[in-house]
Design a protein around this nucleic acid. Sequence first.
DNA 1: CCTTGACTTGAACCTGACTTCAAGTCGCAC
DNA 2: GTGCGACTTGAAGTCAGGTTCAAGTCAAGG
Lengths: 156, 156
Amino acid sequence: MDPKDLLTIGEVEQRSGFPQSALRYYEREGLLTTTRTSGGQRRYERSVLRRLAFIRAARTIGVGLEEVREGLDQLPDGRTPTKADWSRLSKSWRGRLDEQIQALVALRDGLDSCIGCGCLSLKRCRLYNPEDRVSELGPGARLLPPMLRRTPAEGV
Amino acid sequence: MDPKDLLTIGEVEQRSGFPQSALRYYEREGLLTTTRTSGGQRRYERSVLRRLAFIRAARTIGVGLEEVREGLDQLPDGRTPTKADWSRLSKSWRGRLDEQIQALVALRDGLDSCIGCGCLSLKRCRLYNPEDRVSELGPGARLLPPMLRRTPAEGV
DNA sequence: CCTTGACTTGAACCTGACTTCAAGTCGCAC
DNA sequence: GTGCGACTTGAAGTCAGGTTCAAGTCAAGG
């Protein structure tokens, strides 16, 4: 634990790409832990970069922070996580990603058939009336993660 | 325009599945128009159901309300929209849906290779470091729409 | 010692898409 | 004409995932 190996928040920002505000927020939310200098400034172990990489990946595929924390809590307590540890964690998302893809494909095919028949029926069309699941859900955001959103300005 | 053909907000709620609060909100946001009784209560034309079906479909694939409104504004002004009108509108989302699917597939394949190599490198892995696009984006929600989200309670 | 940039905190703000609430009004069956 | 449920409004609240701000403190080079 040579103190020379510890990173300042600015360095972590540089290396991870997460703004300091996000790093502090993640710490508040229990996704990250830090040590402090005598003066109270944060010092990060280098292993935090791997954690952040994991967080980034999770967020990218639409996993919420709550669940990311649960995932990170599964990591071994004392020792540094091994490749296998990370691998096990990532693997659990492969299935969810498959589900998401399937859902979108079903949607697309539904859209195709709707275009074909021009129906737009509330009763028949599964795209336009998908199992009424929406109404069960509470308030909150309902958009795709920005990575998957079309950004109007920079037309890909 | 037989007034018997007009629906109350409660009826629209029943038939569309959208809660009244959402219907009022959509009206405020200019996605819907209504006529009023002498006493000020809303009366909806039956065509609103088709509009709502369209809105539901759009929201399901992650289109924001702003853009849905732009879409609806493209509909002919005086006459009732035809099948062809709706079809043209829906078709424009087919491409976006394809893109979303592609993005997720790329992500999944990236995840696979990460699992394979166990790397999780910030520099190399495209899943864990996807073009740094996240950091450019402002505040706001970052989750999949709830339809595509795994609901923890009711394990599908 | 002093300056300057990096860092600290809590509180407030942001977005999108709604929901909830309180207080009051309509409409219609009896 | 009255009772009651369906309806009205504006204002405020909710959620996730942060950002922004103000006011102050730390660390290190000169």
